[in-house]
């Protein structure tokens, strides 16, 4: 076991794998963060675009006249139908509604939700800067906002009357689950790609270090045999790298040693002359 941990092959493979894991880990973190940001920005742009497209189709003069208790009037129903049509056409949109500004806050005007619709004039408690900005120009939340209906990323666009004055806004909510699911998918895909790359790299490194170590071991075996007096061994390593150079040098050394030993044996075998 100790030999395994001290072997050059283990050290080489482990160092490369750790290096690859470090590099790929950093690459993953950077890519994932940038992708998350880009995805959120894309969602924000999409939400603003949808809100703007709806807002220009709502008659601001009619919207301005809707007051609490008008849920049954044709003007309310017409706006509600417009909102519902867009919602039905966009699977990832959870809620679409209109609001009106009141002092520092905002109240719902048209909410076509089937299950739990907000009433006309119902105060919205979780108002933020992006929503307030939405009364003047298209805007979208920078972070997820949690309210009584859930956690959402929302886009806003102003509803204008015939004079061009802002008389409300259209809000479009996308559930955070939708965005997080997309982020998760991207994260998992990056994990998978990096995982496969690390496995593949590990395999290549194992093969690569294996061939180096195999030849180093052969060199070692030949050196051992020669050191024990076995002159019949030959250096059969053919590589065009530093190990090949080492083997060539070693081969030259061994060949010279053999020649000198042969010469020595022959001289020893001859009878002494001229003494």
């Amino acid at each position: 076991m100790s030999r395994f941990f001290h072997s050059l092959k283990t050290k080489l493979t482990l160092s490369f794998v750790v290096l690859i894991l470090l590099i790929s880990g950093m690459a993953f973190l950077y890519t994932f963060n940038e992708t998350k940001k880009a995805l959120k920005e894309q969602m924000r742009t999409e939400l603003m675009a949808v809100a703007s497209a709806i807002a220009v189709n709502i008659d601001g003069d009619v919207h301005a006249k809707i007051k609490p208790g008008d849920e049954g009037i044709p003007a309310f129903r017409a706006i509600a139908r417009t909102l519902l049509k867009v919602q039905e056409a966009n699977d990832h949109i959870t809620y679409i509604y209109t609001m009106r500004k009141t002092g520092e806050g905002a109240v719902f005007v048209v909410d076509p939700d089937d299950e739990e619709p907000a009433k006309i004039g119902e105060i919205y408690e979780e108002i933020n800067d992006e929503m307030l900005a939405g009364f003047e120009k298209p805007s979208a939340d920078n972070e997820y906002v949690t309210d009584q209906w859930g956690t959402f990323l929302s886009g806003y666009a102003p509803i204008r009357d015939s004079l061009g004055n802002s008389v409300g806004l259209v809000g479009v909510d996308m559930s955070s689950k939708e965005v997080i699911a997309r982020q998760k998918f991207i994260g998992n895909t990056i994990y998978l790609i990096i995982g496969i790359a690390v496995l593949f790299a590990g395999f290549i490194i194992l093969l690569f270090s294996g061939t180096i170590i195999k030849d180093v071991n052969r060199l070692n075996r030949v050196a051992n045999k020669i050191s024990m007096g076995d002159m019949e061994v030959k250096m059969d390593i053919r590589r065009h790298d530093e190990i090949g150079d080492l083997a060539d040098s070693f081969g030259r050394m061994a060949a010279s040693l053999k020649i000198m030993m042969m010469e020595h044996k022959e001289t020893e075998g001859k009878p002494e002359q001229g003494k």
């Binding site: 030259r252 060949a255 010469e263």
Partner: peptide, 15 residues
């Protein structure tokens, strides 16, 4: 020959 046989190449060639 020295590149293949090392410093004893001359001895080998002479032989």
């Amino acid at each position: 020959s020295t590149a293949y046989l090392g410093p004893a190449a001359k001895m080998f060639l002479a032989r």
